[in-house]
Simulated assay, not measured.
Amino acid sequence: MMMTSEDERYAGRVRILHWLIAGLVLATWPLGFVIGFVKDDVKLDFYLVHESLGFLVLWLMLVRIGARLTSATPLVEGPPLEKAAAHLVHGLLYVFLIVMPVSGFLATNAHGFPLEWFGLFTVWSPIGKTPDIAFVLSAIHGWSAWILLALFALHFAAVVFHHVIRRDGTLYRIL
Rank of each mutant, 00 (worst) to 15 (best):
M1R: 04
D7T: 07
E8R: 01
Y10D: 02
Y10E: 12
A11S: 08
G12M: 14
G12Y: 13
R13A: 13
W19P: 15
L20D: 11
L20S: 10
I21S: 10
A27P: 03
P30I: 08
G36A: 03
F37P: 05
F37W: 09
V38C: 10
V42W: 07
L44F: 14
L48H: 07
E51F: 07
E51K: 00
L53H: 01
G54F: 00
F55W: 05
V57Q: 03
V57H: 00
R64V: 03
I65V: 15
R68N: 06
L69Y: 00
L69F: 08
T70D: 11
S71L: 02
A72S: 10
T73N: 04
T73I: 12
E77L: 15
P79F: 07
P79Y: 11
P79W: 14
L81I: 12
L81A: 15
L81P: 11
E82T: 15
K83M: 12
A85W: 13
A85F: 15
H87G: 09
L88C: 09
V89D: 06
H90W: 02
Y94Q: 01
Y94R: 00
V95A: 09
F96C: 11
V99A: 13
V99Q: 04
V102G: 11
V102E: 09
F105Y: 12
L106Y: 02
A110M: 06
F113E: 05
F113T: 03
F113R: 02
P114C: 00
E116S: 14
W117C: 09
W117F: 12
G119T: 09
L120T: 01
F121A: 12
T122E: 05
V123Y: 03
G128M: 08
T130S: 14
I133V: 10
F135W: 14
S144K: 01
A145D: 07
W146M: 06
I147A: 04
L148Y: 15
L151V: 11
A158F: 05
V160E: 02
F161D: 13
F161C: 11
H163C: 08
H163T: 15
V164H: 05
I165C: 15
I165D: 13
R166I: 13
G169F: 08
L171N: 08
L171E: 01
Y172I: 09
I174V: 13
L175M: 13
